[in-house]
Design a protein around this nucleic acid. Structure first.
Lengths: 98, 98
DNA sequence: GGGAATTGTAGCCGTTCGGCGACTTTTGGG
DNA sequence: CCCAAAAGTCGCCGAACGGCTACAATTCCC
């Protein structure tokens, strides 16, 4: 899911925290931040420190991916991926296997 | 590409800025931050403010995506993708086709 | 509905931020 | 090689940070 604003980060963190059944206190301890900081980040604090935010995401097993011109997609092998019709490959697989 | 640390953000920002042929000064003005702040963020400053970082990414047309339990994926189809061994599929394809 | 757990607020404190101006160092095109 | 542009460093400043304690409000379960 796309994240554009501090508020987005807050909502995501809250969702993930609840999905894992953690209290703010527990998350705070695990991520080594103050409990009030969790309150604020979940409310979308724009001036929160980047490092703490990333630590919190890691604690919640959340990962971030960046996209855009100049940003390589996943593992660069140097050798370009050979173009092929994936749909055809999958169709063939469906017919063949089983 | 995955981003885990403030250093990752710094590298990405630098790559994107250069890919667009911008100077630190130009990026700073466009993102409404100080030039020195660009120097620091590109060096991986961990305590940089989240909001400014996001503004800078937006200025560079970079987007962030979050993944993890409790975070919905875009384009939800409802029907989960059937698990399969992609490597095996591709190997079979390589053997079969041609 | 009541009491405990959870969440949100308020104020204090030492620390760091980020903008700015003024340099110095590095880079790269002619 | 040269020099101007770009990038990096330093110190000053007012402002905000984040941890903390204490308290208020909300939520949830029995």
């Amino acid at each position: 899911m796309r994240v554009r604003t501090p508020t987005d980060f807050g909502l995501m963190i809250r969702r993930a925290r609840r999905a894992r059944g953690l209290t703010q206190q527990q998350l705070a301890r695990a991520a080594a931040v103050g409990r009030q900081w969790i309150v604020e980040i979940e409310a979308g604090k724009p001036r929160a420190e980047l490092g703490m935010v990333l630590r919190t995401l890691a604690t919640l097993d959340l990962s971030l991916t960046m996209h855009g011109e100049g940003i390589p997609e996943v593992r660069e092998t140097g050798r370009p991926i050979e173009a092929m019709d994936l749909q055809a490959v999958l169709d063939a697989h469906r017919r063949t296997s089983r």
